[in-house]
Amino acid sequence: MQVTGGGMSSMIHWNPYCNLPPSHHYSLGIAHAPLDLGDDAADPEDETVIDSGFEFGMIDFPGSRSWKRLDGTRSWDPKAQYGDGSIYVSGRHNPVDILELSVKRLSELRYEISALVAVNFSFESAGYKNDRFAFTTTVEYSQMCISIPIWNNPEEVVIPDEWRVPRAWTPETSAEFASRFVDLEDYGDPRMEEHSVVFEPKV
């Protein structure tokens, strides 16, 4: 199916609670999809509502230090993928796994995304059988950011020294940290926000 609208961004994040060291991942947001769920709902009275589009986070793109090198069409081995895809249907959260994914650069920041995904409707008993959907859409890469975590119990957080996470976030320390994961010459100067640092792509 052809879907209209969506966006792509990337983030450097880390999580000491699950021993996830700093890494750079891409995220995709795909607008409302006209899913054909058929008439196999467990409750025929239940109205199907697509509450949000597909959301995918933590996608690893090989050679992804620069958005400029997301060029041509590539596919990813789903067995090597880790993501937190989801879609809300009838108020229920439904996890989504990427089975196939390809990216084709159209112009500057604009890309065509084609994907085959599997939706787990049984996760919160949405009332539909698990299914697969294929879609194609265009997205525009908007930014790379560093999320500055706000810890609920900061005294319990132990960040390994080898992760080299700055103790104080400034334009200088943010740029040095980001340079380990992306090519800064393809991004503008860091913009400091309340809980994040934003780097916009340089075109």
Rank of each mutant, 00 (worst) to 15 (best):
M1Y: 11
Q2F: 13
V3N: 03
T4Y: 14
G5Q: 04
G5K: 04
G6V: 01
G6K: 03
S9E: 09
S10W: 04
M11F: 02
Y17G: 04
C18D: 15
N19H: 11
Y26K: 00
S27I: 01
G29E: 13
I30D: 01
H32W: 12
H32Y: 15
A33R: 13
P34S: 08
P34T: 07
L35E: 04
D36P: 10
L37H: 04
G38F: 08
D40R: 14
D43W: 06
E45Q: 15
G53H: 02
F54W: 00
E55L: 14
E55C: 12
G57V: 08
M58H: 09
I59H: 00
D60R: 00
F61P: 07
P62D: 06
P62N: 02
P62E: 03
G63M: 05
S66C: 03
W67I: 00
W67Y: 12
R69Q: 14
R69M: 12
L70I: 13
G72Y: 07
T73I: 15
T73R: 15
W76R: 14
K79H: 13
K79A: 14
A80M: 11
Q81W: 09
Q81P: 06
Y82N: 13
G83L: 04
D84H: 14
S86A: 12
I87D: 06
S90A: 09
G91R: 06
D97I: 08
L99H: 05
L99F: 02
E100W: 10
E100G: 10
L101M: 07
S102K: 09
K104I: 08
R105G: 10
L106Y: 05
E108R: 12
E112T: 06
E112A: 10
E112D: 07
I113Y: 04
A115T: 07
F123Q: 08
E124C: 10
A126N: 03
Y128M: 06
Y128E: 08
K129G: 15
D131E: 15
F133R: 08
F135D: 01
T137G: 02
T138A: 11
T138L: 10
V139Y: 04
Y141W: 04
Q143F: 12
M144S: 12
C145Y: 14
I150W: 02
W151H: 00
W151R: 05
N152A: 14
N152W: 08
N153V: 07
N153C: 03
P154K: 02
V157Q: 05
I159G: 05
P160K: 04
P160W: 01
E162I: 00
E162A: 04
E162W: 08
E162D: 13
E162P: 06
W163P: 00
V165K: 04
T170Q: 05
T170D: 03
P171I: 01
P171Y: 02
T173Y: 01
A175T: 10
F177G: 00
S179T: 02
R180L: 07
D183W: 07
E185F: 09
E185T: 12
Y187A: 01
G188K: 07
D189T: 13
P190M: 01
R191Y: 10
E194L: 10
H195A: 15
S196V: 07
V198Q: 04
F199C: 01
F199W: 07
K202E: 09
V203M: 14
